[in-house]
Simulated assay, not measured.
Amino acid sequence: MPWRPRQKSRQRVRRSLRRGDGSLARRSRSRYEGPQRRIRQRQFFGGPGLNPVSNPLRVGAVSFVNTVPLIDGLDEHPQVLLQRDLPARLADLLAEDRIDVGLIPVVEYLRGVGGDLVPGICIAAHGAVRTVKVFSQDPLDQVVEIAVDRGSRSSVALLRVLLGEMYGNEPDMHICEPRPDALFAHYETVLVIGDRADEIDPTGLHVYDLGEMWHELTGLPFVFATWVLSERMSVADVRRGELIGILSAARDSGFGRLEELAQVEALRRRMDAGSIQQYWRENIHYTLGEAELAGLKRFAELATKYDLVGESRAVRVAQM
């Protein structure tokens, strides 16, 4: 006998459809704890129209503010199962073929995780990035230890390259989770990524923006993350073109309503909406073009030089 939702669930669906307020999704999150329970609920109902999806396209993305314009509407897309996690964890899920595409740290792609890059989309900086910074009580060429944020492997690898190329310095690095209220509790130099990097008071500190340092060193953009297809999706999956089209449409939708998204994120994260918009428009570049690919290939060369990726792979972009 096929699975049927309980009567109470059907009533909830009808009420949600009448109001059009998305109450089903919110109530589902409050009733089920943990990402796997939320995923199962999405598989049953499948999004707007509540048509069951037996084989959804599995998309993995981070929950940082810089990702918001790229995933607009994916939560409600009838063919998509969206999972949010840390960048490093998404790389693991992609390597295990538990997602079809992941927005992963570029260093993990260079280490062999996943298949082809999704064309035209990335998270890059053409200078100061604002959300990847080193805060130090000493000049960077003098430090002997650095606490590095556990959330992004690309930023840690980039820091290794910058320290070696610009200062000839190879300090010890210790993984931690920096807290703005206790930044220097154990170490005098800390790498901070994500929204937290914008919350720290820089007064009296040496502050280094890694995007700015990379541009100073190479004159090229730095690509922090890209959509990477699973190996299976890259090679033979007939839905590859559909998935790439969905991701491109989500990006276009996000860019069409940045002001509205900034207001939502400002309330949710207790940030300034104008600052968020400025970050999206001026600090982050979301197009994977020739300059970004050149920066990615240059980083691959330097990461190989410092033995951060093993034998680096050739950069390959998927064809539609």
Rank of each mutant, 00 (worst) to 15 (best):
V134K: 15
V113K: 11
I121Q: 11
A125H: 10
D116L: 13
I121R: 11
V134N: 12
C122G: 00
P105Q: 01
H126Q: 05
T131L: 14
P139C: 06
V132A: 15
G112Q: 04
V132N: 04
H126K: 14
L110Q: 00
V118H: 03
F135E: 03
V132P: 00
R130D: 15
I121N: 07
A125I: 07
I123S: 08
V106H: 03
P119A: 01
V113D: 05
V134F: 09
G112A: 08
V106C: 01
V129R: 14
L110C: 03
V106E: 02
T131A: 09
L117T: 07
K133D: 00
G114H: 11
L103V: 07
L103I: 02
L103S: 02
I121D: 04
G102A: 13
Y109E: 02
G115K: 06
C122F: 01
V113S: 02
V106Q: 00
I121Y: 11
Q137P: 09
V132T: 09
I123D: 02
K133F: 03
H126V: 02
K133V: 04
I121S: 08
P139F: 08
P119V: 03
G120R: 09
G112M: 07
G127N: 10
V107G: 01
G115W: 07
I123C: 13
G114E: 10
D116W: 02
C122M: 00
A125T: 12
G112C: 06
V113H: 04
V132I: 08
K133Q: 11
I121G: 03
V107F: 08
G115T: 04
L140V: 13
K133N: 05
Q137C: 08
P105R: 05
G102C: 05
V113G: 01
V107L: 09
A128H: 11
S136C: 12
G127D: 14
L140I: 15
V134M: 14
V129D: 08
V113A: 10
T131P: 06
V132W: 01
V134H: 15
V134D: 12
I104N: 00
F135W: 09
D138A: 15
G114S: 11
G115M: 03
V118R: 02
L117I: 04
A124S: 15
A128S: 14
Y109P: 03
G112I: 11
D138Q: 14
V129T: 10
P105F: 01
